[in-house]
Write a protein that binds this DNA or RNA. Structure first.
Lengths: 165, 165
DNA sequence: AAATTAAGTCAACAACACTGACATAATCTT
DNA sequence: AAGATTATGTCAGTGTTGTTGACTTAATTT
């Protein structure tokens, strides 16, 4: 457990000499940690979690999404989605409508309440981003967008592009 | 469940008209999802999770960190940390050494094995970032760093600054 | 000597992910 | 028309990572 006669251990810090881009690795960690903390606080009161947020977000961004599409975007299993989706339906945030072409499909739509919550959750995140962008030149917005897009696996760019502008 | 006579629902997509910075909100989600997926695959083989990664990362970045400091950075509870830390100690990735000034404290240090794993986990993340930066001008690196830093709560900037360059 | 602090531990619990198996209804293929 | 495939839903069991609250031990501070 503890040792007075110290075990062999490393005292030098890991730095840029050992691995590149460490500063951005940790900035990304801290930024995402705080970015998700704001909506988490709102969700807590409603007894929802981050999983509910993600589902609600994408259903609002692309109403009519099917269950299969949602699984692709969130990269989780059907069983993981099922519970969360059921709760959002039971609490009248999302409705399922039988697919018009293919009646096996269930198209997912937000209700008015679901839209309201999605907006409420987006608000602090928008504010945080807008505030961060204010510290930069207007033209730098494109740089951020291009960087973040390049961080995504190219195979998934199509997912991003399929969302409405 | 499903309804032939459709319930009241919203068919229009949530767009920039409704909430600002939606594109960056979702880019951030996708980027972080893929950013964490690479190390997750390595961790799986070792039966470690993302929590182990975070602990190992920061102990390597700042050897000698105490348990209390780590809790502050990770923003989790002592009990959450305990399990994960115990596993990292039992598998000889981290050692604890009694604090020299204050003997109640336990300073955390990586072992050689712990350093090796930290480097292995950082490698794909470095590569992903370097690749994303290649698509931009050299000077844009600063823009990314300033943006990500501005996304973090100012109260936590000190945590970032306390890590060695 | 008493109070506080750092760390560790116990028990119980919850959210969210997983796997594998199976059921139903609708559509597509032959 | 029969059979295969697809989209969704559901059941049972499991694991990781987080939570709270209560308590202990040892060391330091007051």
């Amino acid at each position: 457990m503890k040792s007075y006669t110290p075990d062999r251990h490393i005292e030098t810090a890991l730095t840029e000499k050992d691995a590149k881009e460490l500063d951005i690795i940790e900035l990304f960690f801290f930024a995402y940690r705080d970015f998700t903390a704001d909506p988490d606080m709102i969700l807590e009161k409603l007894e929802f979690g981050r999983a509910h947020h993600r589902v609600l977000y994408f259903v609002n961004r692309k109403p009519g999404m099917t269950v299969a599409e949602l699984l692709e975007v969130l990269k989780i299993t059907k069983q993981s989605l099922a519970r969360v989706l059921k709760q959002l339906i039971d609490t009248d945030h999302i409705v399922q409508i039988q697919g018009p072409r293919d009646r096996r499909q269930r198209e997912l739509y937000p209700t008015r309440q679901g839209r309201r919550l999605a907006l409420e959750l987006a608000a602090p995140q928008s504010r945080r981003i807008a505030n961060a962008l204010e510290q930069l030149d207007l033209s730098d917005r494109t740089v951020i967008e291009r960087f973040l897009r390049a961080m995504v696996n190219p195979a998934q760019w199509q997912q991003i592009d399929s969302l409405p502008k």
